[in-house]
């Protein structure tokens, strides 16, 4: 059993959430309530990783991470390190391929908030910021729980993009999903079976969390 790989998967999942939750909140809120030019385009771009083959995403990311590309070159000139085959590169990829899993549930739950509730808050003298904290967030929390669970599970499970961009480097980019593939190739089925069982369990927990919050949300809405 490759515990280091699980550590990397968990670190990747938590960092992805740490970056993605604030980012998705901004995007989801704008998509739910603002009408701006190019809104449809933004919505389509956010959904794109859902339908894009992981190898296509992996190919473009790998290209843009290389030292002679704009992004990869900029990163290297600032940090002195290469973005491809590094944990940081993996994190950036993870944020991109998880965008729809985080933004969409949050956006749906913002959209479900009646406009008159927010208007009532403003009329009562609440600032935009306190309206957000006291009214919007508490009403939208089931969307956040879904986003957390889906992003977490999806980060743990993503394979194609991680293999292409990360390159199966022990202690750096070898996540649990990659380690399972690696163990199968080494005919170490016992380790592969153990790690698969852990990932299966985590996925069941994640999907239960999503279903339970969805049910609670339905019940509370009546």
């Amino acid at each position: 059993m490759d515990w280091r790989a699980f550590e990397i998967s968990l670190a990747l999942a938590f960092w992805t959430l740490a970056v993605l939750v604030p980012l998705s909140t901004l995007i989801a809120r704008a998509l739910a309530w603002r009408r701006f030019p190019g809104r449809g385009l933004v919505e389509a771009l956010v959904a794109l990783p859902l339908v894009l083959p992981p190898t296509v995403l992996g190919f473009y990311l790998l290209e843009s991470f290389s030292a002679d590309s704009l992004l990869g070159g900029f990163y290297q000139s600032v940090t002195g390190e290469l973005l491809a085959f590094s944990f940081q590169g993996l994190l950036l990829a993870s944020v991109i391929f998880n965008l729809p899993f985080a933004v969409q549930p949050i956006q749906r739950s913002f959209e479900a908030i009646q406009p008159n509730i927010r208007e009532a808050a403003w009329v009562s003298g609440l600032s935009n910021w306190s309206t957000f904290w006291r009214i919007e967030l508490p009403l939208a929390w089931p969307g956040f729980v879904s986003a957390l669970a889906l992003t977490f599970a999806h980060t743990l499970g993503e394979f194609g993009v991680v293999l292409m961009v990360g390159g199966n480097i022990a202690g750096e980019t070898r996540t649990a999903a990659i380690a399972i593939y690696d163990r199968v190739q080494a005919f170490d089925n016992a380790a592969a079976a153990q790690m698969s069982a852990v990932l299966l369990l985590l996925s069941i927990v994640a999907i239960s969390v999503v279903n339970l919050t969805a049910r609670r949300q339905r019940r509370s809405r009546g």
Binding site: E7, I8, L10, A11, F14, W15, L17, A18, V21, F87, Q88, L91, L137, P138, W141, F144, V145, L148, G171, E172
Partner: peptide, 18 residues
């Protein structure tokens, strides 16, 4: 919500980047 945010933040800080 605040608890989940706190859990995420502290876990991320604990894990660190390799």
């Amino acid at each position: 919500l605040l608890i989940s945010a706190a859990v995420v933040a502290s876990a991320a800080a604990l894990c660190g980047t390799p």
